[in-house]
Write a protein that binds this DNA or RNA. Structure first.
Lengths: 239, 239
DNA sequence: CGTCGATTTGATTTTGATCAAGACGCGTGG
DNA sequence: CCACGCGTCTTGATCAAAATCAAATCGACG
């Protein structure tokens, strides 16, 4: 890029967006520079601690967010307290439910995270004015739908062993740092959260993990940091 | 409507679409009369028997469909034969997965059905040219996502009793013929299909149904025709 | 009437839940 | 620095829900 075009570039892309994880994500990647500027003017970057609720189930939120860093879990809870995690979202995913006011689920930071929050009204307007943005969000919705249905198969038809292997595989696949055959990563979820994702109890999750450890399928450090010597082996257990 | 405007109407809306269930559905309801005419020119109405596969898992289909009558089940099967139904679709739903060639699931008629089949290429072009259509399909995708996540809660955290009650409630809610408090309907699914939807076995489904019958929560005729004397009672069991 | 598939019912087993202790990690304060 | 306390995780013993195995019943249809 030469000096002149570089200056033009710097003149239009907001400073805060330059190095943002979500800059080329589902929302911002579909916006013109002018739109990006406008959205940025009304956006707020926010650090949220693990466990912090971003949207409450049953509430009317007037905000959407982009995930800039960290992992967000989507939960549904029943009146008696039983709980199911129905989705995990990673940077640079978009969090929110266009077209509907009340949220049927809660969104909560699973790890410490950074999100970029902006007003619902503004994005809704941009969606209606920008086919490319509509298309991009439509695409994310369809990808989430595919993921949800894949997980339905896991919840309905896989054994506890297969479920835990599936989760480890899912996390390994989405948490980057991996070498050729051997993969290492930090679990963004506690045992209780894993249980809520898999429709199991804490104890069953723990037992399956130690079984995998004793079998040499995984190495466990800190109970959060996992090393998978052979991903193919793990995938095989997944069925 | 006077004679003149009626003539204009008749001049533009294709005959086959006039009384079609899907005329105001997700796809056709978002089209101009000209687009409707074009889509109709390339559409094929097809009767499909219960059990007939509309799209095969893992295949590349060059067609989409609208459901005009009947119920379609969306299935995922594992290599070892274990199976999970991940969605039910009713008229006038759209069946297909825009933006992706290969289908990750199969679509199969659960009951005798009529569908309107049209070429993928044509609709894809219309989607890119018609923001209203994109928006409408986006909206269906989000509604399916909500439904999938609601079902994840059922699969992961509800008991067999609650699962069967949930299914009866779902069907009762989507199969029209209902009076004030008492609801009657035909199950579009066999016991085996219900089991595949709920992540249970045939025997467990059958036992729960018999239990509900003995408790007076439902009346069973033909094993397919169900009467619910008190929907509130059923909903209570759902949790 | 006899056959076949779908459904129901019964007996037994298995998987994962529940109940109950321990162990471990980590931060706080003596 | 170490003892304490708390929350998370692991491990063990027992229990219960649902699966599996097996057989009987029902219903449609030739």
């Amino acid at each position: 890029m030469d000096v002149a075009s570089s200056e033009v570039f710097e003149a239009v892309v907001p400073l805060a967006c330059r190095s943002c994880q979500a800059r080329h994500g589902v929302v911002c990647g579909a916006l013109s520079n002018d739109q990006l500027k406008e959205l940025n003017r009304h956006s707020l970057r926010r650090k949220v601690d693990a466990g912090c609720e971003i949207i409450a189930q049953g509430s009317e939120s007037s905000f959407y967010s982009n995930i800039m860093r960290g992992v967000v879990k989507l939960c549904k809870v029943m009146p008696d307290g039983r709980q199911q995690i129905v989705g995990l979202q990673f940077a640079p995913d978009f969090v929110g439910r266009p077209f509907v006011r009340e949220s049927a689920l809660s969104a909560e930071a699973a790890t410490d995270a950074e999100i970029c929050v902006f007003p619902r009204n503004l994005l809704d307007r941009m969606i209606s004015e920008t086919p490319e943005l509509q298309r991009s969000l439509h695409d994310q919705a369809l990808r989430e739908l595919d993921a949800a249905r894949e997980w339905m198969l896991t919840l309905g038809r896989r054994t506890a062993e297969e479920k835990v292997a599936s989760l480890l595989h899912l996390i390994a696949t989405h948490a980057e740092p991996q070498t050729a055959t051997c993969t290492a990563f930090d679990l963004p979820l506690s045992r209780a959260e894993i249980a809520d994702f898999l429709g199991l109890t804490i104890e069953t999750v723990s037992r399956q993990m130690t079984k995998f450890r004793k079998q040499g399928v995984i190495l466990i450090e800190n109970s959060r940091h996992i090393i998978v010597p052979d991903m193919d082996e793990l995938e095989r257990i997944t069925a």
